[in-house]
Design a binder for these strands. Structure first.
Lengths: 202, 202, 202, 202
DNA sequence: CATGAATGAGGTTTCATTCAT
DNA sequence: AATGAATGAAACCTCATTCAT
C-alpha cells in the first residue's frame, strides 16, 4: 500500500510536468523551452522537476512517448472492432484524425518530431521505432485489403505511406486553419481515393 | 562595374555560408548548430558571418529559401513542359523526388520544418508562405485535372494534400533507408492510386 | 534512565553519520562530498542526518574533533606512562604514527586540513585550536627535555615544529606508498636526528 | 610577429586571471571561489575567463603550476650557486622560506594542496609529480651530504622528509602569526638540528 | 523519530552578438 | 572587409536545507 501511495504521487507529479511541458513544447519546440518555464507552468520549483526527470530531453521524450502510446492503444482498439481491411484502415485514420483534433496541442510536438526523423541522433532510434510500429500496423492491414480486393493491387508500402502521410497532412492543414473539413468528410474523400471501389457511399 | 564586382563577392560569401549552414542544419536542426560551427565550416571567422547575415535565423531562412526557390523553379519548369494535368502533377512529384534524392542533406531541413509550425514565431509566416506557394500550385493543376476528367471528382484540397504529403512520405522512407524503390516505381504507384484511370501503363 | 536510553541511541546515530562522513571526506575533501552521499553511506535518509547535525560543517567538524580527541587522549595516555622527556616525545610520535597507520582514512581529513588556511572562516578557529593543543603539549615536553639535557639547546618552538611536521611527513610518504619503513625504524631515525645524544641505541 | 602579438595578449590575460584567482583561492579554497568572483577580480566578464581557461579546475591548476615552477626554478638557481651539500640544503630551505614569505597569499594554496596529496583524484598525479621533483632534489643533495660527512648517517629519506616538512611547518607557523622568527634564525636552528656538526656558527 | 518531497540560491558553462583593430 | 576578443544573458543542473507526514 505504501508503495502505491508513493507511486501515485510520483505518477501524478510526472504527469503534471509532462502536461505542462507538452503544452509549451507544442508552442515553441523543444530547444527554446526552458526548464524554468516548465516548472512554473506546472506550478512547482525547478528543482522539483529535476526530482522526477533527470534532464530536459527526458521530459521531452516522456511527453512524446506518453502521447504516442496513448494514440497507439486507441488506434489498436478501434481497429480491433472494425470488420474488414477497409474498415480497419478507416478506423486507423479516423482515430488519428479525431485524437489529434482533440489533442491539438500535442499534434505539433508529435508530428513535427516525426517529420524530423532525420535529425538528432539520440532521440531517433526511439522515434523511429514508434513510427515503424504504427506504420507497420497500417501496412499489414492494407496488405490484407489488397488480398481481399478492397484495395487496388499496388505496392502496400506505397499505399501505406500515402495513407499515413495523407492523414498527417490533413491534420496539418486543419491545425493551421487552412481546412474546415470535418473528419467525416475527410475520411470519405480518402475512401474514394484509396479504395478500389470508388463509388460514393450511400 | 565595381559595384558588380562587389556584389559577386558578396554573393559568393553568402553562398559559402549558406551551404555550410545547410549541411549542419540538416544534420542537427537549427537550434543546436552554433554560429561558430557554421563559420568554421565555411572557413571564415565568426564575425565575418555576421557581416553577411544579421542573425542566425536569417541564415536559416536563407538556407531554406534558397533551396525552396530552386526547387520551386525546377518544379515550375518541368510542369510547363508537361502537357495535361496528370502529366503536370507527375512532373511536380517527379521533380521533387529527384531533387530531394540529389539534395539529400537539404531534405531534412526543408521538409521537416513544415511539420514544425511550432517554432519561433518569426519563422512561421515565412515557412507557411513557402509551403502554400508550392501547395497551391499543385492544387490548381489538380483542379484542372478534375475538370478534364483525369482525376476523380474529389475535393481538390484533399487530393492535393494526399499527393503532396505522399511525396514527402516517400522521401522520408527513402532517406531513412526503409525503401529502395526507384523514382519511376514510386511515380507509377502514385499514378495508379490517384488518377481516375487506374489501368497500368503500357 | 530513559534519558540515557535516548542519549545512547542518539550517540549511536551520530557516530554512524560521522564514520560514514569521515570515510568520504578523507577520500574527496569536504566540499565535494554531498549530504546525500553521507546519508546513504550511513544507511539513512538525508533528513535524518539533519536531525543530528545542523549543517554539513558540523558533521565535518565532528569528524575532525572525534578523531582528534581520540588521538589526543591516546597520546596523553602514552606520554604519561613514559619516563623522561625523550621517552615522552617518542611516545608522542609513536602514538601518532601508529594511530594514523591504523586509521588511514582519517589521516587525510585530519592532517591535511592543517595546512589549509583557506577554509570557511568558522572552521579555522577550531582547527587552530586543535592543532595548538597538540602542538603545545609536544613543545612543553621538549622544553623539559632541553632543560634536562636530552634535547639540544635550540628554540623549543622550532624543535617542536620539526618533530611535529616530520611525523606528519612520514605519514604522508607512508600513505602515498613512497615509504615502506616500519614505525620502529622511523622512530629510531628521528631519535638520532633530534636527540642530543646521537649514538645508536643498543 | 603577429604570432607574438597574439601570444603576448593571451599570456597577459592568462596571468591576469591566474593572479586574481590565486589571491582568491588562497583566501577561500578552490571550491568556494566562483568564476564570477575571479572574473570580476580580474576586471573582465565571466565569459572572457572561459576564453582562456576551459574550466575552473584548469585555472586552479594553472595557478598552482605557475607558482610551483617559479619556486622550483628559484630553488634550483640558488642551489646551483651554493658550494657543498650543507650549503645547498640551506639554500633550498632559505629560498622556500623567503619565497613563501614574500608570496604569502600563494602559500595557502600551494601548501594546503600539497598537504592534501591524498585527496581529489584528478589533480593528484600532477601535484605528486611536482612534490616528488622537489623532494627528490633535496634528498639527493642530502645523500651527498651524508657521504661527505656533513649530515649524520641516517636514512636520507627520513632526513629529507624532516627538512622538507620542517620548512613547511615553519611557514605555517609564520603565516598563522604564531612565530615571529626571521628566516636567518630559523635557518640557524635547522642547521643545528640537522647537521652533523652542531656547534653554533660564529 | 524518520523520511520522502520540495525548494531557493547559486554554480558552471554556452552562445549569439558586438566591438575594435 | 575580415577577424580576434569580449561579453550579457541565459540555460541546465546541483545541493544544502526545510517542510509535512
Amino acid at each position: 500500500m505504501k508503495r502505491t501511495r508513493h507511486e501515485v504521487l510520483s505518477e501524478f507529479r510526472c504527469s503534471e510536468i509532462v502536461d505542462a511541458a507538452r503544452e509549451l513544447f507544442s508552442k515553441r519546440g523543444m530547444e527554446s523551452v526552458t526548464i524554468d518555464e516548465i516548472a512554473s507552468a506546472a506550478g512547482m520549483a525547478k528543482a522539483t522537476v529535476y526530482q522526477y526527470f533527470p534532464s530536459k530531453q527526458d521530459i521531452y521524450l516522456a511527453a512524446l512517448r506518453m502521447g504516442a502510446q496513448e494514440l497507439l492503444a486507441m488506434t489498436e482498439a478501434s481497429m480491433e472492432k472494425a470488420q474488414g481491411a477497409a474498415a480497419k484502415v478507416e478506423a486507423f485514420v479516423r482515430t488519428r484524425l479525431e485524437y489529434l483534433r482533440r489533442n491539438h496541442e500535442f499534434f505539433a510536438v508529435y508530428h513535427s518530431e516525426f517529420g524530423n526523423l532525420t535529425h538528432p541522433a539520440g532521440l531517433n532510434r526511439e522515434f523511429r521505432t514508434l513510427y515503424r510500429r504504427q506504420f507497420d500496423r497500417l501496412r499489414s492491414v492494407i496488405e490484407e485489403g489488397i488480398q481481399s480486393g478492397e484495395f487496388p493491387r499496388i505496392s502496400s508500402d506505397v499505399l501505406a505511406i500515402c495513407i499515413y502521410e495523407a492523414t498527417r497532412g490533413l491534420m496539418l492543414h486543419h491545425s493551421l486553419g487552412w481546412s474546415q473539413a470535418t473528419v467525416d468528410e475527410e475520411v470519405a474523400s480518402l475512401r474514394r481515393i484509396f479504395l478500389l471501389d470508388r463509388r460514393e457511399e450511400s
